[in-house]
Nucleic acid binder design. Structure first.
Length: 500
RNA sequence: GGCGCCGUAGCCAAGUGGUAAGGCACGGGCCUGCAAAGCCCUGAUCCCCGGUUCGAAUCCGGGCGGCGCCUCCA
C-alpha cells in the first residue's frame, strides 16, 4: 500500500502522515456558524474533510472525526467589534437565537447527508461547551497570556514567540499598519478576544454567561480549542478548514491551545481547502447570490454530481463553479452509475466478485487509485484511475464492479445506491423484463402505467409496428422517461434533465 | 502598498526535471428497425522571452494575463 502523504500548511509541504497513535487518526473540522445557509463553497470544504476521513479509513486507520457547530458569538468584524451575527440573524427573522441555530444546523446536516458526507463521531456546539472555554481562558490568564481591556479579556500575542507561525505572519508589519487603522482597545492589532463583556447599555444579548470576568460571551476562536481538546485530547492529528482560516482563526487557535495546554505542536497536520469561485469572484454570503445545494437540486443537478464536481479539482486548488462544469460532472457521474448498474448483474454470477481471485490488472487499477489518494488526496487523479478501470479491456465486469464499489468507499459518489433495479414481477411471462428507474423515485401508480406501456410497445415491436412503438416511446419521453432497448429487455429511466 | 496562487487540447483538469493522466464536448465508425445507452478511433509540446541542464510544462530571471488574501468568510 502506498505511503499516505498529506500537505501540511504548517510545513508548507507534503509530509508522510504519522499519527500520534498507530492506526488511529483524530480529525477536527471547523464547522459553520449557523446563522444562514451554507453555500456551495462552504460545502466543498466539508466534502474535502469527508474525503480525508474516508481516505484514512480506506487506508486502514480508525478515524475519529469531530465537527463543531458555532452557534454563538462571533462578530461581524475581527477587530472584535461589530455585531454578533447570530444575534443579527435572529432579530432579522424574529426568532430566538437557538431557533435560528437549530434551523440552520438542521439544514446544514441535511445538505451533508445529501452529499454523502459521513456522520462524524462527534458533533459539538459552542454553547454547550462554555465551561470548557472558560476553563481554558482561566488557564491562559493564570499563565500570563491575557490582559483585561475595557470590553473584554484579550490574548496578548506578544507573550507568544511562536505566534503567527502557521500563517507566517509578520507582527511588526501588522503593528506598523496599525497606525493607519483604528486603534481600539487592543495593545496589538493581532491580539484577539477570549471573553467579551456584555455591553452595559443597549439591547441585552440573548446569549451570555457568567464567568470569572463577569457576564459576557466567549470569543470566537476559543471554542475550537476547547472542544477539540475535550473530544480529541490535548494534541491531535489533523485539523481542517477553509484556507481563509489560516491567518486569523487557526493562528489564534494555535496560540491559545499551545499556551494553555503546554503542548507544541498542538495539531500535527493542518489542512486547508481552497476557495470555490463563482463567475470569477469569490462566493460570499454578504454579496448574496451564492448558490446553495437546493439551488442545484432545483436546477436538476444531483448532490452527488456536485460531489463529483468537487472531486474533479484538487482540494487545495481554487475551483470555479460554472453551469457547464456542473453539467459535465453530472454526465460523468451518471455514466459511472450506469456502468455499475450494467455490471451489477455480474456480481450475481456464481462465486461473486468478492470470491474471484484478483487479477494482475485489477491489482494495478487499485494501486493507481491508492497512489493518487496517497499523494495528498489527489482526487482528480483518483478519478482518472476510476476511468482507466472502467475502460479496461482485460477486466471482467464483475471485477470492475468490485473495484468501483471499493473505490466508492472513498469517493462517496453513491455509485450503486442511486440505482434501483425492479424486476417486473407483475408480468407473468417476464416478457418486458425488468424495469429500471434511474434516480428520483416514481409514484407506484405511474410505475405500473409505464410497465403497461412498455409491454404494449414490446408487442408492437414484435409485430414490426415501428410507428406504434415509437409513438409510445415519444409519449414516455414527454413524461420525462427515456427508453433503452437492450438485447434482452427494455430499460426505462428518468430522462436526464437540462442539457445533459 | 505588502503577501500568495494560477495560466496545460474547444471546455474542465492531473502531472512540478526524462520525451504530456482522466473527464466532457466535437468528428468518424460499430451496434440498433430507428433511437438511446454502450464500444472503438481521432486532438495539445504545456502564455511569451531569456537562462540553468545531457534533458524542463516541470528549476531560475524578466514580461504579459487572470485571481485570491491583507476586514467577516469555507
Amino acid at each position: 500500500m502506498a505511503e499516505l502523504r498529506l500537505y501540511n500548511t504548517l510545513a508548507r509541504r507534503k509530509q508522510r502522515f504519522e499519527p500520534l497513535e498507530a492506526g488511529r487518526a483524530g480529525i477536527y473540522t471547523c464547522g459553520p456558524t449557523v446563522y444562514s445557509h451554507q453555500h456551495l463553497g462552504n460545502l466543498r470544504t466539508y466534502v474535502f474533510a469527508d474525503l480525508l476521513g474516508r481516505a484514512l479509513r480506506w487506508f486502514g486507520f480508525q478515524v475519529r472525526h469531530v465537527i463543531n457547530i458555532t452557534d454563538v458569538g462571533h462578530l461581524t468584524d475581527d477587530a472584535d467589534a461589530g455585531e454578533d451575527k447570530m444575534e443579527l440573524a435572529a432579530r432579522g427573522a424574529g426568532l430566538s437565537i437557538s431557533e435560528i441555530a437549530d434551523k440552520w444546523t438542521r439544514i446544514f446536516k441535511q445538505d451533508l447527508k445529501k452529499l454523502r458526507v459521513l456522520e462524524p463521531a462527534v458533533w459539538c456546539k459552542a454553547t454547550e461547551h462554555v465551561p470548557e472555554q472558560v476553563r481554558m481562558i482561566a488557564e491562559l490568564e493564570e499563565k500570563g497570556f491575557t490582559y483585561r481591556a475595557e470590553d473584554g479579556i484579550y490574548f496578548d500575542v506578544s507573550k507568544d514567540p511562536n505566534y503567527g507561525e502557521l500563517a507566517r505572519l509578520d507582527l511588526e508589519t501588522q503593528r506598523s499598519q496599525e497606525r493607519i487603522a483604528s486603534a481600539g482597545a487592543k495593545r496589538h492589532p493581532a491580539d484577539f478576544a477570549l471573553w467579551k463583556f456584555s455591553p452595559g447599555e443597549g439591547p441585552r444579548r440573548q446569549m451570555e454567561w457568567e464567568s470569572p470576568w463577569g457576564r459576557g460571551f466567549p470569543g470566537w476562536h476559543i471554542e475550537c480549542s476547547a472542544m477539540s481538546t475535550r473530544y480529541l485530547g490535548s494534541s491531535f492529528d489533523i485539523h481542517t478548514g477553509g484556507i481563509d482560516h489560516v491567518p486569523v482563526h487557526h493562528t489564534n487557535e494555535i496560540a491559545q491551545s499551545e499556551n494553555a495546554l503546554g503542548v507544541r505542536p498542538w495539531v500535527r497536520v493542518w489542512m486547508h481547502a481552497g476557495w470555490l469561485m463563482l463567475d470569477g469572484g469569490k462566493l460570499s454570503k454578504s454579496a448574496g447570490g451564492a448558490p446553495t445545494l437546493d439551488d442545484l437540486i432545483a436546477a436538476g443537478i444531483e448532490p452527488e454530481a456536485f460531489r463529483y464536481f468537487a472531486l474533479g479539482a484538487h482540494y487545495r486548488q481554487q475551483a470555479h463553479l460554472t453551469e457547464d462544469g456542473l453539467r459535465r460532472a453530472q454526465r460523468s457521474w451518471r455514466r459511472l452509475c450506469r456502468h455499475l448498474e450494467v455490471w451489477g448483474g455480474a456480481r450475481a454470477v456464481p462465486g461473486g466478485a468478492a470470491a474471484a481471485p484478483r487479477s494482475a490488472e485489477a491489482e494495478l487499477c487499485r494501486q493507481r487509485f491508492a497512489a493518487a489518494l496517497a499523494d495528498d488526496l489527489n482526487a482528480p487523479r483518483a478519478l482518472a484511475a476510476v476511468w482507466q478501470t472502467v475502460r479496461s479491456d482485460s477486466l471482467a465486469d464483475a471485477e470492475k464492479a468490485a473495484l468501483l464499489t471499493d473505490f466508492d468507499q472513498v469517493l462517496g459518489l453513491g455509485l450503486e445506491a442511486v440505482v434501483g433495479i425492479e424486476p417486473d414481477e407483475s408480468s407473468s411471462t417476464g416478457d418486458s423484463g425488468p424495469v429500471i428507474v434511474f434516480g428520483a423515485e416514481v409514484a407506484p401508480e405511474q410505475r405500473e402505467g409505464i410497465r403497461e406501456l412498455i409491454r404494449e410497445r414490446e408487442s408492437a415491436r414484435r409485430g414490426r409496428d415501428w410507428q406504434r412503438a415509437d409513438a409510445i416511446r415519444d409519449r414516455l419521453a414527454e413524461d420525462g422517461f427515456a427508453l433503452e432497448d437492450r438485447s434482452d429487455q427494455t430499460v426505462v429511466r428518468r430522462a436526464e434533465t437540462g442539457r445533459a
